[in-house]
Amino acid sequence: MRQWTSFAGIAITALLALFLVVPVLLSVYAGLTVNYARGFSAGFTLEWVRQVWELYADTVWRSLVVALLTLMLTLLIGVPGAYALVRNGGRFARAVEEIVTLPVAVPGLALALALILSYGGFGAFRQSTLFVVVGHVLFTLPFMMRSVIAVFDTIDWRTLDEGAASLGSPVWRRFIDVILPNVRPGIVAGALTVVTLSIGEFNLTWMMHTPMTKTLPVGLADAYASMRLEIASAYTIVFLIMVIPLLIGLQTIAGLTEKRTKS
């Protein structure tokens, strides 16, 4: 009986892995074949990737710029904000956390609509890349703050802070020299999450973008709707090349923190 159940478990897990991975491999294959419908016999080429680069290189650069600006803003807003919430605690801090986390639950389209209705009249801002960045910060900020707060919960920051205070260090110095280095794992994990989410963000961006501020996923949607399968696949390869290193980084960090807490 026991063997029967664990066999079924292994089979379901394996099927699940295939379901998730096979389409990805198919898209890599389709992006490199000369003709997908004709299969292997037609041979392989980098021509589609070259065409994608010609058509959509600007979306790749814009996505990188948006992701980096989003990261900078989430660091400047989220890290001090997380510390403020941890320092004060209580009902007020919990309420602030609830509000800041709202964009995780509210549909992205609704947030985008709200931003467009509020700032659509500010032409220069509405048409700039910065408008898209604001949407991305709104959506990713909760992840940065949660990641940092999670680390605060595992360290005794109050003792560290009081120790430094008793040596005469002023409060802002302690924040920079004592607190920040101690929550670094949370900041790094949060940063990788923010960049990954920003590069893949579609729901908000699709509503908020203008023809001049297309990001990679917006370009992908465009290619899926109007380009041949090989080009759409080659474009997907470009996307994979951008996110896979970030995901490996995230997993490595998760592995490192796990080891550290165990030892």
Binding site: S27, L197, G200, F202, N203, P217, L220, A221, Y224, L246
Partner: peptide
Amino acid sequence: AFPGVVVGFM
């Protein structure tokens, strides 16, 4: 890390 559009394509 895949956006919904990529999932649709998969």
